[in-house]
């Protein structure tokens, strides 16, 4: 077993939302509502769930782009929520993010050499000739040509832009990379190029990934561990091969059965969930999946199930299974 690089405990993030002029109390959007997770060095944790379940907020909390309301985040044994100033800057060298949208996450008025070199400049790690050399090297690593460094982002295709974003994330030689839907805005034939690149980089630089995606086929391919999130909570967390073979939580089961497979002859038992995902403003009481759960029993709307280990090693939050 590798050592744990990131430990998240009881993490909560609520966003206040003002409702109307005369509302007395602000309404809270419970984006992340008590999450426990760990990631081991050199491995990939795939985080799946439907839109608005809090996946991206969790990623931003780990980067300290957002400050949580409760809970703890430890990176390499250090509580990162206490960090300030220089210490925080050092943390950010170790944790970087790749964004979903390669169009809006690159400054359109800066040339590529500035974009990729900026992290090195900010952290005072390189300048002048040395900086130029590093930028060219980084561009080669992600499959771009060094001569292209004087171009602007709009002169690149979507896939190439995502490579620029990856080069920027790699510039500080981070240990943990949060990849927030890194390929979902790219064409299918380009997606494979970027996924291959991310996996090559992982083995070359022994990177740890938190891979956020709603694409279940992709997560099955890239992840070692998978965590299923629903309305701000982890419903199930298990090894990739275990959860895809044998999902235990009724939500994971329905989610995996709903993903279309590329086989017209596949006989599938699809579990159709009733209704829509409830709003995170007022999540259902007890187990927050109980409003759509085909297996619900009396206790489900009263008591919140804890995340407990099952005989096959999976951690599952469910009263019934």
């Amino acid at each position: 077993m590798n050592e744990q690089i990131l430990i998240i405990e009881r993490l909560k993030k609520y966003y206040p939302m003002r409702r109307g002029l005369f509302a007395q109390e602000p309404v809270l959007v419970k984006a992340v509502d008590g999450v426990d997770l760990t990631i081991r060095k050199g491995e990939t944790l795939g985080l799946v769930g439907e839109s608005g379940c809090g996946k991206s907020t969790l990623g931003r909390l780990i980067l300290r782009l957002e400050v949580p309301d409760e809970g703890e985040i430890q990176f390499e044994g250090e509580n990162i929520l206490d960090l300030e100033g220089d210490q925080l800057r050092r943390l950010r060298r170790n944790i970087q993010i790749i964004f979903q949208d390669p169009y809006s996450s690159l400054n359109p008025r800066k040339k590529v050499d500035f974009i990729i070199g900026e992290p090195l400049t900010i952290h005072g790690l390189a300048r002048g000739k040395e900086l130029e050399g590093r930028v060219i090297e980084l561009m080669k690593v992600v499959g771009l040509r060094g001569e292209q460094r004087f171009l602007y982002p709009h002169q690149f295709s979507g896939g190439q832009r995502q490579r620029i974003g990856i080069a920027r994330a790699l510039a500080l030689q981070p240990k943990l990379i949060i990849a927030d839907e890194p390929v979902s805005s790219l064409d299918v034939s380009i997606q494979a190029q970027i996924v291959n690149l991310l996996l090559d980089l992982q083995s070359e630089f022994s990177l740890t990934y938190l891979f956020i995606s709603h694409d279940l086929n992709l997560i099955e391919y890239v992840a070692d561990w998978v965590a299923v999130m629903y309305l701000g909570k982890i419903m199930e967390w298990a090894k990739q091969e275990v959860i895809y073979e044998n999902p235990i939580h009724p939500y994971s089961e329905a989610l995996f059965s709903a993903a279309p497979t590329v086989d017209p002859l596949a006989k599938r038992q699809r579990i159709l969930l009733e209704g829509d995902v409830p709003s995170p403003i007022n999540p259902p009481s007890g187990c927050r999946f109980h409003t759509r759960c085909p297996l619900r029993v009396d206790v489900c709307d009263k008591k919140e199930p804890p995340l407990l280990e099952r005989p096959n090693g999976s951690l599952v939050a469910c009263h019934v299974r």
């Binding site: 439907e50 839109s51 709603h214 989610l255 059965s257 279309p260 699809r270 969930l273 995902v277």
Partner: peptide, 10 residues
């Protein structure tokens, strides 16, 4: 979303 997609395809 995936679970809603399944409903609509159905």
């Amino acid at each position: 979303d995936v679970t809603i997609q399944a409903q609509i395809l159905d």
